[in-house]
């Protein structure tokens, strides 16, 4: 349903999105997880045709966001970070206006307006001026606006930001109900949010995709894994063998270089520092340890920068 290939976006010298690729299948709820400034909003703005990409392509329902922008926009419901509402309109008038500009047939406009007000629990405030509503209600008006034309794809930028805990639960419940019928991408910088609502998670940091996985697997990763980079002089197979025998090592990957020097990435599951054991294993076997360091930007570090406490979100 959504295909993103080698997408990049530069703002002058800043690279907001750096060569990202991912796909979202029909009916799937994909979480876009990353700290502030990671490039989530920028990616979503490209998908919704608000910004053009600097490089790469993105397709929604088979249409290119750049060349077939109008077709894409017909099929997308978008809730930006700040709900795009007119503060001087009543909820009902605002939604009827949206029904018109989103190409709903005139006969259906009233029905659809009623339907989304029902779905987003806006009935009590339908004649209220939007400017007087609380943040939670405004957010729901924003969501109703995104849903009004029953779009195939929903793009929700931090949909629970600024809501109180009870509202957060309601909105998440609503999003879950919408999955299946709609294909959804939602962004968040709150870790628990993705495990509650999403089937798959893209972790993005500094414009790059750091990992794509299910929330369950990410929870395992979260328990603590560490990557260590080693450069070793010695026969690849034997070195690899030795490294794997070190306790707590979960995976070893190899990059062969020329002249007998090889690079290894060692992953361990627990938080205990295994560098001494690794060094001992290599030197003990008579291989030459040329370099060893922790690899920066492990998932762990990204997670640390995410908000893990619900209350802080």
């Amino acid at each position: 349903m959504i295909e993103v290939e080698h997408l990049s976006k530069y703002f002058g010298r800043t690279t907001a999105v750096d060569n990202i690729s991912f796909r979202v299948e029909k009916g799937e709820i994909l979480g876009f997880l990353g700290p502030n400034g990671a490039g989530k909003t920028t990616t979503m703005r490209i998908l919704t045709c608000f910004l053009p990409a600097s490089a790469g392509t993105a397709r929604v329902a088979g249409y290119d966001v750049f060349t077939d922008s109008l077709e894409v926009r017909k099929r997308i419901g978008y809730l930006p970070e700040n709900p795009p509402v007119y503060n001087d309109m009543t909820v009902r008038y605002f939604l009827e206006f949206n029904a018109k500009i989103k190409g709903i047939e005139p006969k259906q406009q009233k029905n659809r307006t009623e339907a989304v007000m029902e779905k987003c629990a806006l009935q009590e405030v339908k004649e209220t001026i939007i400017g007087k509503l609380s943040r939670g209600y405004k957010q729901r008006v924003g969501l109703a606006q995104a849903l009004i034309h029953d779009p195939e794809v929903l793009i929700l930028d931090e949909p629970t930001m600024g809501l109180d805990p009870r509202q957060i639960i309601e909105v998440r419940q609503l999003i879950k109900e919408l999955g299946g019928e709609h294909t959804i991408i939602l962004s968040t910088h709150i870790l628990p949010e993705v495990s509650v609502t999403c089937q798959r998670v893209v972790i993005i940091n500094k414009g790059k995709i750091a990992a794509v996985d299910t929330p369950e697997n990410l929870t395992v990763l979260l328990k603590g894994s560490e990557r260590i980079y080693l450069e070793v002089e010695g026969p690849v197979g034997q070195v690899e063998q030795k490294l794997k025998q070190v306790p707590d090592v979960t995976a070893v990957s190899v990059e062969t270089g020329g002249n007998g020097k090889n690079s290894f990435f060692v992953e361990s599951e627990t938080k205990t520092d295994i560098r001494m054991q690794l060094a001992a294993a290599i030197t003990g076997s008579g291989f030459g340890l040329l370099e060893m360091r922790r690899v920066g930007l492990s998932l762990e570090e990204i997670f640390l920068r995410l908000t893990t406490e619900e209350a802080e979100g």
């Binding site: 926009r73 017909k74 978008y78 007119y86 500009i101």
Partner: peptide
């Protein structure tokens, strides 16, 4: 200023 440009630009309007 109010961010509603984002609404107009991402709706199927020319």
């Amino acid at each position: 200023k109010s961010g509603t440009m984002e609404l107009l630009m991402t709706s199927p309007l020319r």
